[in-house]
Write a protein that binds this DNA or RNA. Structure first.
Lengths: 234, 234
DNA sequence: ACGGTTCACGTACCGTGAGTACGTACCGAT
DNA sequence: ATCGGTACGTACTCACGGTACGTGAACCGT
């Protein structure tokens, strides 16, 4: 059998077994849509990016788009998920291998500060994510990606102290640090000297962590209830 | 409408000297627009609120709206400014009278946690502000209101330590805490037991501030450069 | 091999809503 | 009285998200 009928010059689809040609083509255009959407959302923002321009960029039509996604928001969510999970993976990768909690924290922070400077993550996840997805969905997404990493770091950092940590308090600390890092990341990205700004953020958070250590050394307990008068051991 | 010669049952405009009737009427409809807009933006969000519904609620027409505002975004910004400055004033009010830095910090935090639970501030300022205004404008607005309060608190807290604080480091710490509080506030507002959640946040941040105190007592310097290995005095 | 079914789109259209052009009534100064 | 300008109201345009439906190629059973 000579390869007579297969001579299409559409994309190279090297005959993956178990996956039909249709499925491959389909996945291809879907990825193209997400690619173009990510680019345009990053550059012009969600509201200022029309679906017409996206489908034009992906060289398809709205019919294709609405076949794969239920609407503009769903497309955004797909982009969001990819950007977010990429970021989470990058951080995860750095965290593996580090054993010392403080080392872990430092490495994680450093990586996050790099990630948050990528224009895609900045705009899609940090700036527009909450407004476009609605805060609830936004939180759900974060919960099982980047936030999970922060949680892991906080667990290991707080676990290093002499405290027994309740889960809710751990969550609270993690939320606080997560927000702190997002905000700090924004200011770093918006700074005219991001390198110096990142260094300052690292120093500041490092300082706060050092405060934890100092409290641990001093034998101060982790708070559990409402904030009473703060007293060091004197 | 039987229009008698003089004002009959049009809004109460008690003859303020120096302000013409026209100016008063004008200001009245403008305020009505901002009022209705705030309500609707808070309830349904920016994108899901049509200008038609706003002008209907304010009992005027789009002509009036576009006379006072250059567009939807400008209207949102007016709402944003009012919500934001109200919040800043509330915090400011609490801060006055407190002299002790730690007291100031605690009171400020507590007030902020209350403010951030108001649905208007939550949605308009925290959630949709960055996306609608664009991060640059958002930041400019925050800079001279709520963030300014955080800055003041941080200055007095850090000033209480033995450190000489550079302005940039102060800014960094303030950014971090500002983001931390915003994120924490969101989680508090989204919690099913906001009171307990707020208490945990207070405790956590209080703990971190206690860490500052501990470091101050231990004579640890404020970091200035990139993060070196963190060492307590041992 | 072949008919039928399904899938992956393309095409044409609709409704909504932001923004605009322009008309107008009323206030305030002359 | 009149006259200019302010503060709107009215009627329209147009971009854009979404929908209905058509179509041809890929798959599947016989």
């Amino acid at each position: 059998m000579a390869k007579s009928s297969v001579s299409k010059l559409v994309p190279k689809v090297p005959a993956v077994p178990g996956v039909s040609r249709r499925q491959q083509y389909s996945a291809s255009t879907k990825r193209a849509l997400v690619d173009v959407a990510e680019q345009m959302f990053t550059e012009h923002g969600y509201a200022s990016t029309s679906l017409d321009s996206i489908v034009a960029g992906a060289d398809v039509t709205k019919g294709a788009l609405y076949h794969h996604f239920s609407g503009k928001q769903a497309l955004f969510e797909a982009v969001f998920e990819r950007v977010e999970s990429d970021a989470a993976r990058a951080i995860q990768k750095v965290l593996r291998g580090k054993k010392d909690p403080w080392e872990k924290a430092r490495a994680g922070l450093r990586t996050f500060l790099e990630v948050v400077q990528e224009p895609g993550y900045r705009r899609i996840v940090v700036q527009e994510g909450p407004a476009v997805l609605g805060y609830e969905r936004y939180r759900e997404q974060e919960e099982r990606s980047t936030y999970a990493n922060v949680l892991e770091i906080m667990r290991s950092v707080l676990g290093a102290g002499p405290w027994e940590l309740e889960d809710e308090m751990l969550q609270t600390f993690s939320r606080i640090f997560f927000g702190a890092m997002a905000s700090a990341g924004e200011s770093v990205a918006g700074s005219d000297d991001p390198i110096a700004a990142a260094a300052r953020v690292e120093a500041a958070i490092g300082f706060m962590i050092a405060g934890f250590q100092a409290l641990a050394d001093a034998g101060v307990m982790l708070p559990t209830g409402p904030l009473g008068p703060i007293t060091t051991t004197d």
